[in-house]
Amino acid sequence: MSKPKICTPTPIIKKDIKKAIEGYSKVWESEESIFEEMCFCILTPQSSAKQADKVIKQLKEKNLLEKGTAKEKEPYCKNVRFFRTKAKRLEEAQQKFPKNKLKKILIENGLPLNPLKAREFLVKEVNGYGLKEASHFLRNIGFGKEIAILDRHILKNLVKCKVIESVPKNLSKKTYLEIEEKMKGFCKRNKIPFNELDLIFWSNETGEVFK
């Protein structure tokens, strides 16, 4: 059986995907970048990655990413939905996971050897994180080889590839983990690196690779 067309990136996109994944692995070397990615993934639920990225850049420009109150952050968070709630979550994250302690906290809770353990910790401890957001964060800091970012975009493509029959109405933890395993099997059968599949789906629809 041949590989589905939507799982086959163009040579240029394939090069961009490899470059993106190499970039993720370098994030782990920088405490500032790790904290930035944690905040980015707090902002992404029900908002586009590009809009969340704009917010991060605005907060950094105003020196409000690593400090400041939720009220101070709010004016620069309006590109994303539920910006007041997310501004509060950013303030909570900076207090609970200070930039200079975050990497140590992650190491104490599974990284780099056990990303699945780290994901459980993040879901429990980071306000605003579910399995999808925790997985997105871990992928963006270089630990995406074992975990799937199951947003609606990915799920729809998994339906097209006949990995799942339909997009589930409610993505419980049990369902999430079951689909993640099916996705791993699909990647193995088609010789697709597991941490590349979501980027392949995204790039084939948009023509670009974005985190």
Rank of each mutant, 00 (worst) to 15 (best):
L90G: 02
F121W: 14
I105A: 03
S172W: 03
P11D: 11
K211R: 14
K191R: 14
D16N: 13
V209D: 13
T175D: 08
C77V: 05
M38E: 07
P75V: 14
S203Q: 09
I56H: 01
P168C: 05
K57W: 00
L106S: 02
N157F: 04
P98N: 03
G144I: 07
K14S: 15
L116R: 04
Q51Y: 12
V80K: 04
S47T: 06
F137P: 03
K5R: 11
N109S: 07
K132A: 11
P168K: 02
L155D: 12
L155N: 07
K19N: 15
S47L: 05
Q51T: 14
K132M: 12
S47P: 06
K211P: 01
N79I: 02
E61Y: 08
I107E: 15
V80F: 05
E22I: 10
T175S: 11
K62W: 02
L197C: 08
N79C: 07
I17E: 12
N100W: 06
E36G: 01
T175H: 02
T85G: 11
N140R: 03
E178R: 10
N63Y: 05
A20C: 10
P75E: 14
I164D: 04
S47F: 01
P112N: 09
L150E: 13
F40S: 11
K104G: 10
R119L: 04
E125Q: 13
I13V: 15
Y24K: 06
K191Y: 03
K117R: 11
I12F: 15
S30V: 05
V163Y: 05
S33L: 13
E29M: 12
K60P: 01
R139G: 10
V123T: 10
V163I: 13
F97N: 01
I12M: 15
G110L: 02
P112C: 10
A52I: 06
F201V: 11
S135K: 02
E125Y: 00
K18A: 14
V55T: 08
I192Q: 08
T175R: 13
L131M: 13
L116D: 10
T175G: 01
I17G: 09
S25E: 15
E120V: 04
V27M: 05
V209S: 12
V126R: 00
L90Y: 04
K188Y: 12
K50R: 14
I13W: 12
G110E: 08
L116N: 08
T10V: 06
I154A: 15
F83E: 11
L64F: 05
A70C: 08
S47Q: 02
T69V: 09
A93K: 00
I107A: 11
A87R: 01
F186E: 12
R84K: 15
E178I: 07
E22P: 00
